[in-house]
Design a protein around this nucleic acid. Structure first.
Length: 873
DNA sequence: ACGACGCCCTAA
DNA sequence: TCAGTTAGGGCGTCGT
């Protein structure tokens, strides 16, 4: 089949991009994608060349410049130097030369060399991103190209033309088209950059593979494995047994045949992938072909000597598998749900409480070798279940669609949305804008961290139950300030150089040029994102009104991705290493923010209004409501109902009028909520309240209820106490607490409701897989480290960063004794705990709150009763 | 008993 | 998770 005979055209979503150096010179981008039509595509994209940009430092003389340029020109890594262009850089506006280079990999050494004489910019941008930056593309695009190869899942008329072709011949024609051989994708096309067109985002029909291993507890071997392929919602299950080589080769064949875009599983980053990596390496000896048979999971060719199909983990925790995205369901669930415990069972119970069949515990994971020997069929069933669950988890938390939306909004490959960092998302938008606006792209900054900057203002709060509160907050405070004050590394100037007019001077002395002098890149980008979010919200509402829930959901993900992205800006620009920032930017943003909130607080206090609390961008103010109006929500028709409604309306109107009054350009104050009552025990960042507008709701911040390292009994006790307190039933609240404490002392509680869980760090020894806890100053003084060690001794999985559950068994000694919680995994019934410790913890936490009503920790612990709380109410 | 310190987790 | 930030609460250990 001659190259160019057949053309394929369609919409795709790019998963991952790499590049292939051409032996005759030049570089071809290799983009792996999923077509809207359902098949996978590899695109060999021609027409981009790696480059860096240079400019002369101030002291360079013009006559020396030519000879300097000649020196660059004769460097064998340099292909050509373009005509100079005036670009803005921190040293001022000046000519910059784009220097094309032979291959991306020469850039690091070349830039070091050039830096001796030149200001070197655009010199640390990963080459594959150039496709998106230079052509201003997002992951969803329309593409056309000549078909080089097609397999059976490609469109029928194309696939049939390639039936029975000789694979060696095909591999050759792919290499001639710029690729490296037979990719695992359904279709391989060749195109030029002019063949790629931006398109509206659409829901790409990704294919997902989820897998799970069962491994020996006594050695590092793999006993069996399972994999499920999800293609357009249709799931097919596979199991693998036999010797390890057969198991691994079987999984690899399935991945190459099914060609999934996404690989998932539970804790695969830290467990399954490293285990396969290690076993494949052990079993293959030095045979690279054998290694690829067992672990050649990438989309790259596995014949021809290249090892690029092999998954790899650079310095980071994250795995990269060429052409695919690795999404660990553990990590996604952890960040989305912040669950109290992180085991697959626990997360499944959290998400699917009505489906106990998903987590029936009939296998003891700590005795896997015996289980496998005695009941292999059940172990396999268990294994399959653990491959289905990760897919259901990703679905339930909308992880895949959320990342696709983020990729679309940040305009980068799907894989980069999944595995990238906040600064990479912002880079993707900033670099293309800077290029367009003739601003040089500085390198990522290195060197020592500067001193910490001052953050937001947190107002002191008095303890007590504060009736009738209006909550106001500044809308998108940091982004708004950045827009309003034209904050950008291109507009910041030293105050002494500031022009006399149209300058913004922050309270901490940082100056920014106004728009008449120069319009900042960052404010423009934020403005565009704000407008984009509004558009998506409107599209969402339109779809919802038409009862098109699928489309509404699609726009909801997009608007949410914009929100996430916008909220990331401040942190990235306040960091010390980000390429497009300056030392002073972060501190100036927070200085303006403090000035805004303090301004409102001071004004109100000068008018004798009571500001109860405020944190960074929020203000809690007492509304002018008679103090004898009850804050408890009365039933409709109850005698107090009328005065309650009046108080609520008064609070709402009060809040709305304040919002209107204090809103100014770049600082829009919004009325957020009306509270019938707000409680504080006097500590910042901890409060709860009864929301009565816009909806009735219990608001809790900071308290143990919100913390993943609390225990169920305390959390439940606290929640019900809050409800009682807000209902005016403080006597009953105290009685309940005291009763509970007595029950705990009598061991009349379920131990699983006493499990405390905290995340535990550690470093894995690459050689023997052991875990080293020396990151801690005193590891044996920390209960969760002791628990992690116990898990490991038991043969249970522990990976650094994981949360570890434990029961305190004796707190009279120091350090206290604990036992790791393993009932979920081993089935062993655990009953040992220290009742006094738990009684004390409950009393301490609840005492802080009841103390406000005259009951301190000690009194909660004591048996005697004397209730006269109501005097307080 | 008390304060310094290490550590985790949360609010924003 | 070679790269978002600071403010703040609270628990536990250790040394005095």
């Amino acid at each position: 089949m001659a190259d160019g005979d057949m053309v394929w055209q369609g919409r795709i979503c790019i998963i991952d991009v790499s590049y292939q150096a051409q032996s005759e010179g030049g570089t071809v981008l290799v983009a792996h994608a999923r077509a809207e039509a359902g098949h996978s595509v590899t695109m060999l994209v021609h027409g981009l060349r790696p480059f860096v940009v240079i400019a002369a430092p101030d002291d360079a003389q013009n006559d020396r410049l030519e000879s300097w340029l000649d020196d660059v020109r004769i460097d064998e890594r340099v292909v050509q130097i373009h005509d100079p262009e005036i670009l803005w850089c921190e040293e001022g506006e000046r000519p910059h030369w784009r220097v094309d280079v032979t291959q991306p990999h020469v850039v690091p050494k070349l830039r070091d060399h050039l830096s001796e004489r030149w200001l070197v910019t655009s010199a640390d941008i990963v080459f594959p991103m150039r496709l998106f930056l230079d052509l201003d593309l997002g992951p969803h695009m329309e593409v056309s190209g000549s078909v080089i190869h097609a397999r059976s899942r490609a469109p029928l008329e194309i696939a049939s033309a390639f039936e029975g072709v000789d694979f060696l011949e095909v591999a050759n024609s792919i290499r001639e088209a710029g690729g490296s051989g037979l990719y695992s994708t359904d279709l391989v096309i060749r195109c030029g950059i002019e063949d790629l067109k931006d398109t509206e985002p659409f829901r790409a029909p990704f294919v997902t593979a989820s897998f799970d291993l069962e491994t020996s507890v006594v050695e590092s071997t793999i006993l069996c494995a399972a994999m499920v392929i999800d293609r357009a919602g249709v799931q097919t299950e596979y199991t693998f047994q036999g010797n390890e080589r057969e198991i691994l080769a079987g999984m690899t064949r399935l991945i190459r045949d099914e060609d999934p875009d996404i690989l998932t599983g539970y804790n695969i980053d830290n467990f399954d992938l490293p285990r396969i990596d290690q076993r494949a390496e052990d079993l293959s000896g030095k045979d690279r072909g054998l290694l690829l048979d067992m672990f050649g999971w990438g989309r790259d060719p596995v014949v021809g000597g290249s090892m690029r199909a092999l998954p790899s983990r650079s310095q980071s925790r994250r795995w990269s598998i060429g052409g695919r995205a690795v999404m660990d369901a553990w990590w996604e669930a952890r960040t989305a749900l912040r669950p109290q415990r992180e085991s697959l069972r626990f997360v499944s119970e959290l998400l699917f409480p009505d489906r106990p069949e998903l987590r029936k515990m009939d296998i003891d994971a700590s005795r896997m070798d015996e289980e496998w020997a005695q009941r292999p069929d059940e172990v396999l069933r268990y294994c399959v279940m653990d491959t289905v669950l990760p897919i259901e988890i990703l679905e339930a938390i909308h992880a895949i669609r959320g990342k696709e939306a983020l990729a679309s909004v940040a305009r980068m490959p799907f894989q980069r949305a999944v595995g990238g960092t906040t600064s990479q998302w912002i880079d993707s938008l900033m670099i293309r804008l800077a290029d367009r606006e003739k601003v040089a792209i500085p390198r990522t900054r290195s060197g020592p961290r500067r001193d910490q900057i001052v953050g937001g203002h947190v107002q002191d709060v008095d303890s007590g139950l504060h009736p009738w509160i209006a909550v106001l907050d500044f809308k998108s405070m940091y982004p708004s300030i950045m827009i309003e004050k034209n904050i950008c590394f291109t507009t910041r100037i030293d105050a002494k150089d500031a022009p006399s007019e149209d300058v913004y001077l922050s309270p901490d002395g940082t100056a920014y040029l106004g728009r008449s002098h120069r319009s900042g890149l960052v404010p423009r980008l934020l403005q565009q994102l704000m407008e984009e979010r509004d558009r998506q919200k409107i599209a969402m509402k339109v779809a919802r009104n038409e009862d098109d829930e699928v489309t509404a959901f699609f726009h909801d993900r997009l608007q949410f991705a914009v929100k996430i992205l916008m909220n990331s800006f401040y942190g990235v620009f306040a960091s010390s290493f980000y390429r497009f920032t300056h030392q002073d930017i972060g501190a100036s943003i927070t200085a303006w923010a403090r000035s805004n909130i303090r301004g409102v607080i001071t004004t109100l206090e000068d008018e004798n209004q009571r500001v109860v609390y405020g944190d960074t961008d929020s203000i809690f103010i007492s509304a002018p409501v008679d103090s004898d109006i009850p804050t408890r929500i009365p039933q409709v028709g109850e005698k107090d109902r009328e005065s309650f409604e009046i108080a609520r309306n008064t609070t709402v109107e009060f809040g709305q009028s304040l919002a209107k009054r204090f809103t100014k350009a770049g600082a829009e104050l919004e009325f957020e909520a009306a509270l019938a009552a707000m409680f504080s025990h006097g500590a910042k960042k901890r409060y709860f309240g009864q929301v009565v507008w816009p909806e009735e709701d219990l608001l809790i911040r900071g308290y143990e209820v919100r913390r993943s390292d609390s225990f169920v009994i305390l959390t439940n006790c606290m929640t019900s106490s809050f409800e009682r307190i807000l209902a005016g039933e403080t006597t009953q609240a105290v009685e309940d607490i005291r009763t509970l404490i007595q029950r705990v002392r009598n061991r009349d509680v379920a131990p699983k409701n006493l499990v405390i869980s905290r995340s535990c760090k550690g470093k894995i020894n690459r050689k023997d897989g052991s875990v080293d806890f020396s990151v801690y100053a005193n590891p044996d003084g920390l209960p969760y480290v002791k628990a992690a060690k116990q898990r490991l001794a038991r043969g249970l999985n522990f990976t650094p960063g994981m949360k570890v559950g434990y029961l305190v068994t004796d707190a009279t000694s120091s350090p206290m004794s604990v036992v790791d919680w393993h009932e979920d995994e081993t089935g062993e019934i655990q009953t040992d705990f220290d009742p006094e410790y738990y009684a004390k913890r409950i009393a301490t936490a609840m005492g802080r709150i009841t103390e406000v009503f005259g009951w301190n920790e000690k009194e909660l612990l004591q048996g005697s009763q004397q209730s006269s709380l109501d005097r307080w109410m």
